[in-house]
Amino acid sequence: MVDLSMLEWLEEWYQGQCNGDWEHQYGIKIDTIDNPGWEVSIDLHGTQLYGRKFTDVSFQYGDEIDWFFVTVKDGTFK
C-alpha cells in the first residue's frame, strides 16, 4: 500500500521549488533498478536543502527484501 501522505508531501515540496526556472533544470526522478526495486533521485540544487549536512541511512529487514539506503551525493538526494 502506498503512503499517500508521503507522496502528497513530496508533491507539495516540489511545487514549492517551482519558480519558473528550477523545474526546467532540476527535479525528481523515480526509476526501477534491477534487483528489483526503485531509485528515487531528488535534485537539491537551488533549494534550501542544498549543501546541508545529511547522515546516510541504511536499513535491511531480511536477506533480500525490505531494504533501503538513503544518501546525498553531489547535491542529489537518493
Results as ranks from 00 to 15, higher is better:
residue 55 T to G: 09
residue 77 F to M: 08
residue 31 D to M: 10
residue 2 V to L: 10
residue 5 S to Y: 04
residue 21 D to Q: 13
residue 77 F to W: 12
residue 62 G to N: 07
residue 74 D to W: 08
residue 55 T to R: 14
residue 19 N to I: 00
residue 34 D to E: 09
residue 55 T to E: 15
residue 48 Q to M: 12
residue 4 L to E: 08
residue 71 T to K: 10
residue 19 N to V: 10
residue 51 G to E: 13
residue 4 L to R: 08
residue 55 T to M: 08
residue 35 N to V: 09
residue 71 T to A: 11
residue 59 F to N: 05
residue 41 S to Q: 14
residue 2 V to Q: 06
residue 36 P to C: 09
residue 71 T to S: 12
residue 29 K to D: 09
residue 46 G to E: 02
residue 25 Q to T: 07
residue 24 H to G: 15
residue 74 D to K: 14
residue 7 L to D: 02
residue 64 E to V: 09
residue 23 E to Q: 04
residue 32 T to K: 14
residue 13 W to Y: 05
residue 76 T to A: 07
residue 48 Q to S: 15
residue 46 G to S: 00
residue 49 L to H: 15
residue 11 E to K: 10
residue 13 W to K: 04
residue 49 L to R: 13
residue 74 D to I: 00
residue 22 W to S: 03
residue 54 F to E: 00
residue 56 D to F: 11
residue 42 I to G: 01
residue 8 E to V: 11
residue 16 G to H: 02
residue 70 V to L: 13
residue 40 V to L: 11
residue 34 D to R: 13
residue 26 Y to P: 00
residue 61 Y to A: 12
residue 63 D to P: 01
residue 46 G to Y: 01
residue 38 W to P: 00
residue 13 W to S: 01
residue 43 D to P: 00
residue 20 G to A: 08
residue 27 G to A: 01
residue 60 Q to G: 12
residue 31 D to T: 13
residue 30 I to S: 09
residue 58 S to K: 15
residue 60 Q to P: 03
residue 71 T to F: 05
residue 23 E to P: 01
residue 27 G to I: 01
residue 56 D to H: 05
residue 56 D to S: 12
residue 58 S to M: 07
residue 63 D to V: 14
residue 68 F to T: 02
residue 56 D to A: 15
residue 76 T to L: 02
residue 60 Q to V: 03
residue 33 I to T: 11
residue 36 P to R: 07
residue 38 W to S: 13
residue 8 E to S: 07
residue 2 V to W: 09
residue 21 D to T: 15
residue 27 G to L: 05
residue 51 G to M: 05
residue 6 M to V: 14
residue 30 I to K: 11
residue 1 M to E: 02
residue 29 K to E: 12
residue 53 K to E: 13
residue 23 E to I: 01
residue 69 F to K: 10
residue 20 G to H: 02
residue 16 G to D: 03
residue 33 I to E: 13
residue 22 W to N: 05
residue 42 I to R: 05
residue 35 N to F: 13
residue 72 V to W: 01
residue 15 Q to M: 10
